[in-house]
């Protein structure tokens, strides 16, 4: 009896992620959803710049690597010419909410029928622990060594809330992958996002609160605690937009 196996929509290439990093969990959830919906052959993923850039090696569907912040624009190009394909981007907080803010906002405004998987771990991982647009006030990073101060570095951005205000956004939810219950819920949200796309309702965005033990300088376990205590306080979990049951589609 098989009790556990790798989703088919993941390749055999081993992940390069650090121990305790939650990218692996989210990759797996996305791949499971692709498997369950049987859509790997019709899916094109867009890898962004950051730790998850190598996701193009891990997902078994066709993959395109986008310049930093431009994944939503690249996804637009794929989706508009292949409206029957499933197109998702997988982006970190620096990519999505700093250098790619305009691209993100405008796929929401246009209601591009794509799915954005947004990994919010409040820090730049790949470059080694610099301040992210989602870094919390007071949080120490290598570029906010005295803690983020709003007078100097400004305030953290709440992406799910912001995107939910856009008319073209159909489904926006913030989830976390800190515990089994939340992981299950995150998968449900990702499934719903892909279903939203299937039904051509418009943009779906799932913000996933994640950890970065290496750059947070904490053990994986402590990181999960820190996520619950600090991140969830500033970034409450929940559904911020759901017009998927409304009549009419976005085509």
């Amino acid at each position: 009896m098989v009790v556990f196996e790798k989703p088919k929509a993941l390749t055999d290439v081993p992940f390069h992620y650090c121990p305790g990093c939650t990218h692996g969990i989210v990759h797996r959830l996305v791949a499971e959803v692709i498997d369950e919906m049987g859509i790997e052959g019709e899916t094109v993923g867009i890898a962004s710049v950051g730790c998850s850039v190598f996701s193009y090696n891990y997902f078994g569907c066709d993959m395109v690597q986008a310049p930093h912040g431009r994944a939503p624009a690249v996804a637009t190009g794929v989706k508009r010419s292949h409206p029957d394909n499933f197109v998702f981007t997988y982006q970190g907080d620096g990519d999505l909410a700093a250098i790619g803010t305009a691209e993100t906002v405008h796929v929401g405004a246009r209601g591009e029928n794509i799915t954005i998987i947004f990994i919010n771990n409040a820090i730049y991982g790949m470059t080694g622990g610099q301040m992210a647009p989602t870094t919390l006030l007071g949080q120490v990073t290598t570029t906010s060594p005295y803690g983020r101060k709003k007078e100097i570095q400004g305030n953290p951005i709440r992406v799910a809330e912001m995107i939910a205000t856009l008319d073209g956004a159909a489904y926006v939810e913030r989830v976390a992958v800190d515990c089994v219950k939340n992981v299950r819920n995150a998968k449900k949200a990702i499934r719903k996002a892909f279903e939203t796309q299937k039904n051509k309702k418009g943009l779906s965005l799932i913000e996933v609160l994640s950890t970065c033990p290496t750059n947070w300088g904490m053990s994986p376990e402590k990181s999960l605690e820190w996520l619950r205590e600090n991140m969830m306080a500033h970034y409450p979990l929940g559904v911020y937009k759901d017009i998927t049951e409304e009549a009419g589609d976005n085509e």
């Binding site: 094109v44 867009i46 395109v64 986008a66 310049p67 431009r70 624009a73 690249v74 996804a75 637009t76 190009g77 794929v78 989706k79 508009r80 010419s81 292949h82 394909n85 305009a102 691209e103 906002v105 405008h106």
Partner: peptide, 26 residues
Amino acid sequence: GLCLQAESEVSAINMVLGCTASGERA
């Protein structure tokens, strides 16, 4: 066909990137 006004020149060229990556003339 499609003529899409992008939010910026940066986005426009990246939409081209996505479109041509999926095999279409753009």
